[in-house]
Simulated scan of single mutants.
Amino acid sequence: MSLAYLRLEIRRTFRSTRFVVFAVVFPVVMFLLQANLFLPAGTPHRAELVGVFMVNMMAFGVLSAAMAGGGRLALERAGGWQRQLRLTPLSGAGYLGGKGLSGMLVALPALVLVPVVAVITEGVHLGFDGWLRAGLGSWLGAVPFVLLGLLLGQFGTPESMQPLGMLVTMTMGFLGGLWVPIDTMPEWLRGVSQLLPSYWLTQLGRGAVTSELSVSLLTAVAVLAGWTVVLGAIVIRRYRADSARV
């Protein structure tokens, strides 16, 4: 993988005002709104609920950032950039690896800013193992969403990627329990949410702040690993099919 190509990908991402607002600023603002509007002082178990809001917005920032690479990939396909790259020493694995690692790295700001704001403004406190699970777990849990973004970019067009990406991100967020607390969902909707990787992403962080409606860490990791393998195989297959047509 070319480090120069990776730096280029990261710079291009952060030059997008829409990306910075939606994947970095928005999760922080939504955390503050949720914590202060829905959880006034004196709310029972407020500290625990604020922690849940925090890890949910960490997950949303990670999800949004991870999916962002799909739009750029669609533009590169439409503009012939992929065909040009195939004439360079950059391999297909290097190209996809650069896209994937870029998606992971640009997820870090929201993953850091949301808990910093939570600690400063709401006094959220976790032990070392809790922060490790919420932070590192949520970051590594972004892998299947990076792959999902790349998959959408391999099929979508530059015109369709913005609404498509927004639709997928918001649907994943809603059904994954990021916007509507899982414990307020009807039983049937909880069953639907468990079919999506976003539910298991929130479970990585949720288990660090509460035991209510949480699953074991190993279960969440195993499910997300399964999504990673399946999506990774499809992305590679699609890229090879595109290459064969050139």
Rank of each mutant, 00 (worst) to 15 (best):
F19I: 15
T13M: 14
G130A: 12
L213A: 02
P115W: 05
S2H: 12
V215F: 04
V143D: 04
R15E: 08
L75F: 04
Q154W: 01
S102P: 04
G165S: 09
T157F: 01
P109R: 03
E122A: 12
A74F: 01
Y239L: 11
T43N: 09
I182F: 07
A4P: 09
T219E: 12
G141R: 07
V223I: 13
V124W: 06
F155K: 01
G79C: 02
N36D: 14
L108S: 00
L108A: 09
F38E: 10
G226Q: 14
L73R: 06
L126S: 09
T43P: 09
G94W: 07
Y199T: 11
L96I: 15
A35D: 08
D129P: 02
E122L: 07
W81G: 01
W188L: 13
V55W: 00
V21W: 14
S214R: 00
A78Y: 07
S216T: 08
L37R: 12
L167C: 11
V20C: 13
H125V: 15
P163N: 05
L90G: 03
G98P: 00
L201G: 05
G135C: 11
G80K: 06
L126E: 11
W179C: 07
T219K: 14
L204Y: 01
G232P: 12
L175V: 10
V28F: 15
L224I: 15
R245G: 15
F128I: 12
W81E: 05
A222E: 07
V21N: 11
L195S: 14
S64A: 15
L49M: 06
V235G: 02
L136I: 15
M67C: 08
T219R: 12
S216V: 02
A134T: 10
V24N: 12
V192L: 12
M104K: 00
L85Q: 04
V52P: 03
W139C: 04
L85K: 04
G156Y: 03
L164D: 01
G42M: 10
M161F: 02
T219I: 09
L3G: 08
L63W: 08
Y239N: 09
M104N: 02
T169V: 07
R237S: 13
V28P: 12
G149S: 14
